[in-house]
Design a protein around this nucleic acid. Structure first.
Lengths: 217, 217
DNA sequence: TGGTCTATAAGACGAAAGTCTTAGCGCGCA
DNA sequence: TGCGCGCTAAGACTTTCGTCTTATAGACCA
């Protein structure tokens, strides 16, 4: 009996993943989520053996979402599902702790193989990239470690900071006082080893897989 | 009689470029620069037909340097010389107005052909990328336009902002009062259509060709 | 059960950011 | 020569940022 959580904001692609899995695994408990919040809820409510995670889900904020889940459930195997083919991006995803990377172009048998391998404790990567994997530089790993040390509240504040919001606006969105936001901001600075929000935004933007489409302005 | 300016911080590579050119062009006036400041000085002092520009020169700040020169001398043909092979990066370079892209791995004959083609008014790209050129999205072009509308002083202030410096530190580096820095900052916000420095840093980091190696902190 | 640690929360206060206004200077133009 | 315009510069003032200090609630441990 294997329980899987499929976290992807496209219902059709969730169905495709399900179809690829049900033909291979006959004793399967499947859960689904369309955004990061419900993903976290389902992980809390059920005992999940493997998470199939799309990084571009609402609320996921690219690598932030993966870091967030890795922090909450360090022992949960995570396979990232994404449309990117960029080796550098895949390297970062693996560096942050994903046990597998499944391209959206993968075939049903590839998907089943990947899930099987990861459930058995292996790391699975598509053949096209596993031989061209670039070593991720040390600075990135250190940065990922630092960001992982943030508390959930601090995560959210950092995500809003990266979107260019004022402390007051962040407080409104999180329903806390501006003074509390400032406390979180200061804590973030300490953990990341910096001293102003500009540097925080620079570090945070390094974790983005692709440049933001707009300035959120 | 053709006058060329080679702007690259590696003397050896400047020599290599010279070697590739003197064998093909027999009536050649060559100038050399090792950083952006001396590049601009030489462009002012002499009548240059073509600039061979390395974006990773000291003071160049990746695409900022090219934008800067494009702003000062809109009619000057520029060929960018760089070690990158990334199609997206090359697309951005061309979108910002470079008439050619010469990979550092190019052969002597390729270099000579490129220079010849650009001097004749063509755009020259290496064969390996010209067929895989990605269309640059509209937002990037708009951003480049906005950044090009900045004055030289505003450029410098934005570059320092992107490095996480305080207004006071920027003023010290540029030898102007903090009040003046603030005036520039406000003007930058207006031109970029934003209202705080966090958003400015986000936009500026989109012009970086590669993610910064460190937080400069 | 009491002690300690951590996350969360928030007020007070100095520092920095950002806006508004004014002013000198160089330039094109009538 | 005089006018307008844009770049540079800077003071005055308001808003936001960031630190320091304090307080509460839950987790872990002895």
């Amino acid at each position: 009996m294997v329980s899987l959580l499929i976290a992807d904001d496209h219902p059709l692609y969730r169905d495709a993943l399900k179809g690829a899995l049900v033909t291979t695994f006959n004793d399967l408990q499947l859960y689904e989520a369309g955004d990061l919040t419900s993903t976290v809820s389902l992980l809390y409510e059920h005992d999940i053996d493997l998470l199939l995670l799309d990084l571009h889900m609402p609320g996921s904020n690219d690598l932030f979402g993966l870091l967030h889940i890795r922090k909450l459930y360090p022992d949960l195997p995570v396979a990232v599902v994404s449309g990117t083919e960029d080796p550098a991006t895949i390297s970062k995803i693996v560096a942050v702790g994903a046990l597998g990377f499944i391209p959206k172009t993968a075939s049903s048998s590839d998907i089943a193989n990947a899930v099987q391998a990861i459930l058995e404790g292996d790391i699975w990567l598509p053949a096209s990239v596993s031989n061209t994997m670039e070593p991720v530089d040390n600075e990135f790993s250190e940065l990922a470690d630092k960001v992982s040390s943030l508390t959930p509240s601090q995560y959210k504040v950092l995500c809003y900071m990266r979107d260019g919001l004022l402390n007051k606006q962040i407080g409104y969105n999180l329903d806390i006082a501006e003074a509390t936001v400032k406390a979180h901001v200061t804590a973030i600075f300490r953990k990341l080893g910096i001293n102003n929000r500009t540097q925080a935004v620079l570090l945070a933007s390094q974790l983005e897989l692709e440049p933001p489409a707009s300035a959120h302005g």
